[in-house]
Design a protein around this nucleic acid. Structure first.
Lengths: 192, 192, 192, 192
DNA sequence: GATGAATGAGGCTTCATTCAT
DNA sequence: GATGAATGAAGCCTCATTCAT
C-alpha cells in the first residue's frame, strides 16, 4: 500500500478521531484496533507507533475532553457579566461537548469510563463552584453553610441524575426533570 | 470423576456463591467460567446446565441483592416506631449488605454493573421515600414541594456521593462527609 | 467441523507426535501452534486444552526423551553379560533414539534446547558411569583416579564432540572420529 | 532532532557497543533494533545504514571477539618463555575476555550463538594445540598419539565442561573442577 | 549520512459455549 | 443431572525492515 507520511500531530489526531467515533458506536471493548486502522487506511503497526496500548488511546481521549472541559469552566468562572447565581447554574448544567464524546461516554460498554470521567469532572469543578458559593454567601447572595460539601453534593446529584445514559431519560423527560432540579437547587442555595 | 448429584437448588446456590466470591476478587470479566467450576469441583457443562450464559448468573446475583434490599426498605417503611425524619435518614443512609456483595460491586472491573445496580436501587427506593416526604409534608413535618423529584435527587446524590468505590473515600473521611450531607438534607427537607 | 472426542492420553500423544515432527522440520520457533493443530485436524483451542503454552509441549517432549533415555541406560547398567569396558563404551557412545527426536534437537533453531538436553543427559549418566569406573578400578579393570570427574569429562567431550549437529560432521567423518576417540578413552581408562 | 554526523567507524563501533550491552542484558532475540538506537539516540534508519540486518550485527560482534581471541592464542603460541606443557594449559584454560562479551554469550537466549562461538573457537584453537602436542611428543615431552584428535577432544571437553553458563557452576565449584580436569589432562598428555 | 514515520505479517492465547456420552 | 473434551472466533501486540525526505 502506498506509504503516506504525515505530520505526527496530524496523524495522531486522525487516529484519535477515528477511535472516538468507533468507541461511540460500538463501545471501547468491542472496537478492535484493526477497526480503527482500517477506518483511516493505515497499517496496524502505525497505531502502535503512536499509542503503546489500546487503553492508552482511551486515556488520551479522556484527557482531551478534560482539557476542553476545564477551559470551559474557567471561561464561566472569569465571566464578568454573569451573576453568581447564573454562574452556579452554568456550572451545574453544563452542556455536553460534541455529540461524539457524549455518545462515547454513554455507550453501555463504556460505563466504567463514563463513571471515572464523571468523578474526574466533579472533582475538577468542585473548587470553582465551592468558591463561587462561599464568596456569594459572604456577599449575601447565597445562604450556603458548607460550601465545599454543598458544591460536591450538588455536582454529584446533578451530574449523575441528569445524565441521560445513567438514568436512560428521553430528551423531553430530561428537560422537565432539569427544571424541577433547578428549583431544588435554588431552594438550597439562593437566599430569598 | 465421581458424579455427585445434588438438589438443584443447592447446586445452583453453590454456583452463585462461588461466582460472587470470584467476581468480588477478580471482577466479572476477569473471572472465567472455568474458574467458577474449578472452585466447586464440577464440570464445565454443569455450569451451563444451570445458567444459559455467563451473564445470566450475574443477573441472578443482582436480583438476589435486590430482593434482600427491597425487603429491608419495606421493613423501614412499615416500622411503626420511627418518625418520618428517621425513616428518611434510614432510607438515605442504608448500610451495605454483606461484604462480598460490596466487594463485588466495587471491584474496578464491575463498574458498569455497579452503576446499573445503583440506578435500580434508586429507582426502587424512590417511591417509598417520595411517599414518606409527601405525607410528611402534608402532616407538617417537612417542607418538600416536589416530593418525587426531591426523593430522586437526594437518593442520587447520597448514593453516588457516599459510595466508597466511586469517590474512593477512606472510612474516616466518609463518616465526616456523611455528617455534612445529613445537614444538607435536613436543611432541604425538615421544617424548622 | 465434526467433533471427535478421544481418550485424553491418545489425544495428547497425538499432539506431541505432530509437534515433534514439525519441530524437527522447521524448528521450535518457526512452528506455529496453528501448524500443529492443522496437521491433526483439531481446533486451536484443543491444543491449549492439553498444554498451557507452546513452551510446555516442548518440555513435555524433552521429558519423554529423558525417560526413554534413562531406561536405556539402566538396561546397560544392569546387563549381566557385559564387561565393565563394554559398559563404558555403551554408555559413552549411545546411539540416538528415533530419527525425529534427533532431527528435532539438531535443528539449528533448537540449539538452546539441544544444549539443555545434552547437559541433562550428561548429568543423568554421570552417576552410572562414575560408579562403573570406580568399581572397575577397584576390581583392577581400570586405572581411574577421580571417577566422578573423569566420567563427567568423558561424557562432556564425547557428547558434544560427536554430536553431528554441533560440529557438523558427515557420517563418514563421524565414524572415523569415533574410533579415534575410543582409542583416547581406552588409554585414559583401561589398564594395560 | 539535530542531525549529528560522525565518523562512520566511530558510529559503527558505537552501535556495536550498545548492541553488545543490550544483548548481554536481554539476549539477542529480546533486544529490538529500536532498543539499540534509543540507547544511543539515533534514528532507526541509521542502524540499517550500517548493518543490513539485525543478524549482521551479531556476526560482526562475534567476529570482533574471534579476532581478539586469535591474537591472544598467537601470543601464547609464539611465546619463547613458555614450556610446551605450559602452553597446553594456557590454551586449554584461556580466561574469558571482557565481562560484557561473557554475559552476552551466557545469556540464556543466546545459547545458539554461544554454541556456534565455542565451536568456532575450538576449531580455531585446534591446529595450534595440535601442533604443540605433536611437536612436544616428537621432542619427548608428551605421549600423544593422535595429536589432532586429542587436541579437539581436550578442547571440546574443557570448553564445554568448564563453561559456567552451560553447566551452571558457581565460581567455587568451577575452580575445584578445573583442578581435577588439569590432572586428567596431564595424565593424558604428559609423559611421566 | 541521517531521519523517523510507516509497514504488515504473523503469533500466541483466552474463553464462552456446545455436544456426545 | 453431570461430564469434560472439543470448538473456533477474535484480538492485541511486536518488530525487523523500508522508504521518502
Amino acid at each position: 500500500m502506498a506509504r503516506i507520511s504525515k505530520n505526527p500531530e496530524v496523524r495522531k489526531a486522525e487516529i484519535m478521531d477515528a477511535s472516538l467515533e468507533l468507541f461511540a458506536n460500538k463501545g471501547f471493548e468491542d472496537t478492535a484496533v484493526s477497526d480503527i486502522v482500517k477506518k483511516i487506511g493505515v497499517a496496524q503497526g502505525t497505531f502502535y507507533y503512536y499509542f503503546k496500548t489500546k487503553e492508552e488511546i482511551m486515556i488520551a481521549l479522556i484527557d482531551r475532553f478534560m482539557v476542553e472541559h476545564e477551559e470551559y469552566i474557567k471561561t464561566i468562572d472569569e465571566d464578568l457579566h454573569m451573576s453568581p447565581a447564573e454562574k452556579v447554574n452554568a456550572i451545574l448544567f453544563v452542556k455536553p461537548f460534541h455529540q461524539k464524546v457524549s455518545d462515547f461516554l454513554h455507550h453501555e460498554n463504556n460505563a466504567w469510563i463514563h463513571q471515572k470521567f464523571l468523578v474526574k469532572k466533579i472533582n475538577e469543578m468542585t473548587p470553582y463552584l465551592s468558591r463561587i458559593l462561599a464568596e456569594g454567601t459572604k456577599e449575601g447572595y447565597f445562604k450556603v453553610e458548607h460550601a465545599q460539601e454543598t458544591a460536591e453534593f450538588l455536582l454529584t446529584a446533578v451530574n449523575f441524575m441528569l445524565d441521560p445514559g445513567i438514568f436512560e431519560l428521553k430528551d423531553s423527560k430530561l428537560e422537565e426533570k432539569k427544571n424541577v432540579v433547578k428549583n431544588i437547587v435554588n431552594n438550597l442555595v439562593i437566599k430569598d
